[in-house]
Design a protein around this nucleic acid. Structure first.
Length: 318
DNA sequence: AAGACGAAAGTGGTTGA
DNA sequence: TCAACAACTTTCGTCTT
């Protein structure tokens, strides 16, 4: 693959002063403000800005009485619950609002109401599907330690996949995992296919297939994963200094101008750059340590770093 | 003894006919 | 659909610190 090919469709990451009118990823102007006050592209699912995200109350109170007066029930609405967290639940305790026990007749009535309430809540097939998908999404993103913006983006992708009838005949788990992986790439939150695959029963192959499916059928324009995306994660895991981190980024930038980053696994390139940077900054890590956090083999780290050293004189005596 | 090195053979994904 | 191919992995013996 040529360097040019790999470079296309880069989102413009420089934040503009005002809210953008078009999606920086796909150029669509179908931007919607979600109920959790995130600006999201309804075409590709990119969460454009979530810095306004605030789950707290929108008022301030200055006395307990005022607090009581202003309080209202329920968590904020969110895309990651099948009903956006807006459903009402009926208490299981058979007491009235004042705490008095209900009589037998009322108890039986409440029982009936509860039953039908639950049945109606997750009634439609698509609702049931969404309910189970959102709990799976929650589990998976919890294990992957994903921030809220990635989860919301994944949830939106799943809703769109459901709308397009892509789930029927496929496993919910596979599509959820694919949406999570896609959301990671959209939001430049570096997780590899293997990372996501590790926490789901769906095989890597199936996951890749589902991912390609949603990209194609939802017409998503995926940004290319860059080695730089992984540097922070790896230097943190290796407890390397900020200087080494910056040095690694510098090496990657130079490598790009030489055109030796194309066609190679970005995690390998990142690992190699960090290896060199750690030596240059005097906090050397072994090839083994680095290959472990990057999830690649020592041999590949070795080969990549040899290439980098060969390509330009980095002052590393081998 | 640990870490680095490199050769050789095998694997899974992509590409182009 | 299939073969060719590049990238990557696994394994292992050797060299260096």
């Amino acid at each position: 693959m040529s360097e040019n090919n790999r470079r296309k469709a880069q989102p413009d990451t420089t934040p503009s002063e005002d809210e953008p009118q078009t999606c920086p990823n796909c150029g669509s102007n179908h931007l919607i403000m979600t109920s959790s006050r995130e600006l999201v592209c309804s075409n590709c699912g990119l969460v454009i800005s979530d810095d306004v995200l605030d789950f707290g109350a929108e008022w301030r109170e200055f006395s307990p009485e005022e607090r009581d007066k202003r309080a209202r029930a329920g968590p904020p609405s969110t895309l990651t619950m099948h009903d956006r967290g807006l459903s009402t639940t009926i208490d299981w305790r058979d007491v009235d609002a004042r705490g008095h026990k209900l009589d037998a007749h009322r108890r039986a009535e409440m029982q009936r109401i509860r039953k039908w309430h639950n049945r109606s809540r997750v009634y439609q097939a698509s609702e049931r599907n969404l309910a189970s998908a959102m709990s799976e999404l929650d589990r998976l993103s919890g294990q992957l330690d994903l921030p809220q913006r990635v989860r919301q983006s994944a949830a939106l992708l799943y809703r769109r996949a459901l709308d397009k009838n892509l789930i029927r005949g496929r496993s919910i788990e596979a599509i959820v995992a694919a949406c999570v992986y896609a959301a990671c790439r959209f939001t430049s939150f570096p997780r590899t296919l293997a990372d996501v695959g590790r926490y789901t029963r769906v095989g890597r192959k199936e996951l890749g297939r589902s991912y390609r499916l949603i990209v194609r059928r939802l017409g998503l324009q995926m940004p290319i994963t860059q080695p730089e995306d992984f540097v922070s994660r790896y230097t943190n895991a290796l407890k390397l200094s900020q200087r080494t981190h910056a040095r690694a980024l510098d090496i990657l930038m130079k490598a790009r101008t030489k055109g030796i980053t194309s066609g190679k696994d970005p995690t390998c390139i990142a690992a190699a750059a960090i290896y060199i940077a750690s030596i240059l900054e005097g906090e050397r890590r072994t090839q083994r340590e680095i290959s472990e956090v990057a999830g690649v083999t020592e041999v590949t780290v070795r080969n990549r770093y040899k290439e980098l050293v060969r390509a330009f004189d980095l002052g590393v005596e081998v």
